[in-house]
Write a protein that binds this DNA or RNA. Structure first.
Length: 854
RNA sequence: GCGGGCGUGGCGGAAUGGUAGACGCAACGGACUUAAAAUCCGUUUUCCCUCAAGGAAGUGCGGGUUCGAUACCCGCCGCCCGCACCA
């Protein structure tokens, strides 16, 4: 008898149609059932889905289908993070309108996602560029304003002087604008800010409660918020002649204990004092321009060589009579942190040390390991930065000598407070969230600027403020600014001619509340109370680790801001978070260095050549799939060739989900072969015959053990392990073919189908029919393993001598340690390994191991 | 530069203080076939030993804790992610 091969091309669309017609995945609130909200980070509609999407959405889908089978009322929605710069770039480069470009991409990607067979509730689809979505964003912004969570202040942007446009950090390449090539300048601009810093403490302390988030993400957020306990204090300033000036220099430090090691002060190039002095100092002016050319990226600033400009001013040391510290403007001091001014203690800070060596400033060690002789302790090329647990002591520090660091800090703080020159201060690294963007393709900020009334919010009845469609990208800069009519509006307060805000929102705003909108996507409020109460928070959120800080922190802030304004009643949006790894692939390039698509690379006589031109190819590294290196595989091609189930299966097998996965042709083929193997095994099971009772019990145990393990693995998102267990069951089923009782074979086959279903839903439905089972897999509950069949009554215990494995014994499960010890002592292999030495000790871990020490 | 992570056979990985290498891929040998594909059966960490039995080494590198370390601690090396206007 021959079995026809499984044909996914025919079967997959058929089952997708069935689920759609059956409305299998449309969710509705149901108080009688426990809910489960699974959400994957929604995609930016860039054009076509990529393998990273396939991986992300497959994982979410497995969870959704698994939870559904377990009896949960599952919400699994999908939408589009549809505003953003690529749409404008397409408009500038190819003349397509951002709106049509975006909606065409959405149509393509939606078709692609549908072909993956995802268990999504498409009736809840949202696109952030739709006014029905962003009108709520505008209304909430006004609510936030009323709550005092919005502020307008000046901040720095990257300015391209040729294109007359603000550049994102990623558009600044080596200090130049990516399109114009012009040297980028920093420029001050009045911008809107959301006061996320109002929640600094709260966002930090609530991290402790997020026990189902990866520890690394919590740590990254903690460090990002960066709470520090330090001091703010002021130095008296004098000029070169020693004349006291009517000006103080206020600095922030967390290392006030090292004040006796101070050898200079440094202020940011954007510090008020630097700005004022540069008017009369050309050298300083040039220095400030040089620093401005670095742009606004903290990474660039901190990587740049440490440089300073001597201001010719001196700060009087508060505790050392007659000692004065030169004051510099320096490129590594950030205006946005603390006071934008520091004192430098080169011996105990690497940046300060680099700076001091460059400008020939003294290096005075003031902290040393306890027991070191102060006279001998020197700092060379590396600053002495103490680590946790170090036992250190203050030296060269007058009244602080001999104290530990915490005690010295307390002493300095007390003295400075008594002197009235400073106070203890908690500081945060976290800055307020600048949400203004000088771009077209984003949500308009609902504000009107009136010459007489000032800033006036657009009345809610007039919302949404919609984007005009008739815009031109011919001129550089923001099209909303150039639009002939859009920005002209009457002031809602006084009725006089006024001007609309032409900035749009940061797209991070769009993605900071979409999880809530999915609960009631068609409501005329951002989210209805009943829907939010039932569905929130997200039980399982899944996305890339690249969002570990910004998106997740902004979302956490938004949940709080929405709660403060009565839109939500929950502070943490994501109960459990999973960060999945990237999809990587081999790279190929021609001998002239051009990247080649993997689809065009073929092996001939062991060498790689271009399939079309026959050119020889070099195999490069295995790297993140990217268009620039062309090491991409199109999901459409894979699905057309093998079907969605194969692609889904491959994405989950072998590699742990949090790690990067390498897409390989052979791995995909292996997954494809397995789909066929399952099909064959199930068809054989449907016509099973056999009569070996031992094989039946063995198969039965194997099936129940596999079920138990897979259930646990899927609950814990260990997809790769679940798949390994499914392979084992398939092997067991194969081995039992023709031997085991038909009933046992059918049970094992049905477990195999149901366990594979979250990963390979189409094949599972097809197999279910072939097995002649009732109903459909999509409506079949998850089976339960029989505990009696899961435990073995005999176990294998490893026998070690001095920690080295020498033997193993089979023994009844639960045999007491004393009995095991007696049995093990007499083993021939143990006696031989001991080589006549007496036994000193025997360690027995019941059911696991026995270790004889001799 | 700062913050965070990862590192195990030819490859992806399993084992989170107790038998290192489950499961998959690749490779090799065999069966079936006129042949190929597909499928099925078997072998596969390295080294010593003709085989067997047995032994030694081995989880990026160097140290430490422990009866026992891939896992815990300290110091390095390599790779990856984030750094506030990419999404």
């Amino acid at each position: 008898m021959s079995i026809e091969r499984y044909n996914p091309r025919e079967a997959e669309p058929r089952w997708q149609a069935y689920w759609t017609e059956n409305r299998s995945f449309e969710a509705a609130e149901d108080a009688a059932r426990p809910k489960y909200y699974v959400l994957e980070m929604f995609p930016y509609p860039s054009g076509r889905i990529h393998m990273g999407h396939v991986r992300n959405y497959t994982m979410g889908d497995v969870i959704a289908r698994f939870r559904r089978a377990l009896g949960y009322n599952v919400l699994h929605p999908m939408g589009w993070d549809a505003f953003g710069m690529p749409a404008e770039n397409a408009a500038i480069e190819r003349g397509v309108h951002p709106k049509s470009w975006t909606y065409e991409n959405i149509a393509t990607m939606k078709r692609q996602l549908k072909s993956m067979g995802l268990a999504l509730d498409w009736s809840r689809e949202i696109a952030t560029c739709d006014p029905s979505y962003y009108r709520h964003e505008q209304a909430m912004f006004i609510d936030f304003m009323e709550k005092g969570l919005v502020e307008r202040k000046v901040s720095m942007v990257n300015w391209d002087p040729v294109d007359h446009t603000v550049l994102a950090n990623e558009q600044v390449i080596e200090g130049r604008g990516w399109r114009s090539g012009a040297l980028v300048e920093k420029r001050e601009l009045a911008q809107w800010f959301l006061k996320i810093t109002a929640y600094s403490d709260e966002l930090l302390s609530a991290l402790d409660g997020l026990d189902k988030w990866p520890e690394k993400v919590r740590l990254m957020q903690k460090n990002w918020i960066g709470r520090s306990e330090g001091m703010r204090f002021s130095f008296a300033l004098e000029d070169a002649q020693g004349k006291l000036l009517n000006e103080k220099l206020t600095v922030y430090t967390t290392r006030h204990d090292t004040i006796f090691g101070a050898s200079f002060c440094a202020i940011s190039a954007d510090h008020d004092l630097a700005k004022r002095l540069s008017g009369s100092d050309q050298g300083l002016d040039a220095f400030r321009r040089e620093v401005a050319a670095l742009g606004t990226s903290e990474e660039t600033i901190e990587r740049a060589e440490k440089k300073g400009y001597d201001l010719g001013l001196y700060a009087r040391h508060p505790f050392r009579e007659g000692v004065r510290l030169p004051v510099y403007a320096a490129n590594f001091v950030l205006m946005g942190y603390g006071e934008g001014a520091i004192f430098g203690c080169p011996a105990h800070d690497q940046r300060d040390l680099d700076f001091a060596r460059k400008y020939g400033l003294p290096v005075i060690p003031v902290v040393a390991p306890r027991g070191t002789d102060a006279a001998d302790f020197m700092v060379g090329a590396e600053a002495f930065v103490e680590k946790e647990g170090d036992n250190t002591v203050l030296i060269n520090s007058d009244f602080l000598n001999g104290m530990g660091v915490p005690q010295a800090k307390a002493e300095i703080a007390t003295r400075m407070e008594a002197m009235g020159i400073g106070e203890r201060k908690v500081n945060f690294r976290l800055r307020d969230w600048g949400v203004s963007r000088q771009r077209y393709w984003g949500c308009p900020i609902p504000i009107i600027h009136c010459a007489s009334c000032g800033i006036v919010p657009v009345p809610k009845a007039q919302l949404p403020v919609t984007l005009p469609d008739d815009v031109s990208f011919d001129k550089p800069g923001n099209p909303l600014e150039h639009h002939p009519a859009w920005k002209h509006v009457d002031c809602p307060a006084c009725g006089k001619a006024a001007r609309r805000e032409t900035d749009t929102f940061d797209t991070f705003i769009d993605s900071s509340w979409y999880y809530a909108r999915f609960c009631s996507p068609h409501a005329d409020v951002p989210v209805t109370e009943e829907a939010a109460k039932y569905w929130m928070g997200v039980d399982q959120y899944i996305g890339g680790v690249e969002h570990a800080i910004l998106h997740l922190l902004y979302s956490r802030f938004y949940a709080r801001a929405m709660t403060a304004t009565g839109h939500l009643a929950i502070k943490e949006p994501f109960d459990s978070l999973f960060t999945q790894g990237m999809v990587i692939h081999e790279t190929f390039r021609t001998l002239t260095g051009e990247w080649v698509l993997p689809a065009d690379a073929v092996q001939q006589d062991g060498k790689w050549v271009h399939a079309k031109t026959g050119e020889a190819l070099e195999v490069g590294g295995v790297e993140k799939m990217s268009k620039s290196k062309k090491n991409v595989v199109d999901p459409d091609d894979i699905i057309a060739r093998y079907g969605a189930d194969t692609a889904r299966w491959f994405m989950l097998s072998d590699t742990p989900p949090e790690r990067d996965i390498e897409w390989t042709e052979s791995g995909a083929e292996g997954a494809w072969r397995f789909t066929q193997r399952v099909w064959r095994l199930v068809n054989e099971a449907a016509t099973a015959s056999g009569s070996d009772p031992a094989a039946s019990l063995e198969l039965c145990r194997a099936a129940h053990k596999a079920l138990q393990a897979v259930t646990e693995d899927l609950s814990a998102l260990r997809f790769n392990r679940a798949i390994a267990r499914i392979y084992e069951l398939a092997n067991a089923l194969n081995a039992a073919h023709g031997k085991a009782e038909p009933a046992a074979v059918r049970e094992a086959a049905s477990f195999l189908i149901l366990m594979s279903a979250p990963m390979m839903p189409h094949l599972a439905e097809e197999c279910w029919q072939a097995l002649g089972a009732k109903g459909h897999v999509v409506d079949t509950p998850w089976p339960k393993a029989d505990p009696a069949l899961v435990v073995d009554d005999e176990v294998t215990i490893a026998v070690q001598v001095n920690g080295k494995r020498r033997d193993e014994i089979r023994i009844a499960k639960g045999t007491p340690a004393a009995e095991v010890e007696a049995k093990v002592r007499g083993l021939e292999s143990v006696v031989r390994s001991l080589e006549g030495r007496p036994i000193k000790k025997v360690i027995v871990v019941p059911d696991r191991i026995a270790n004889i020490v001799g």
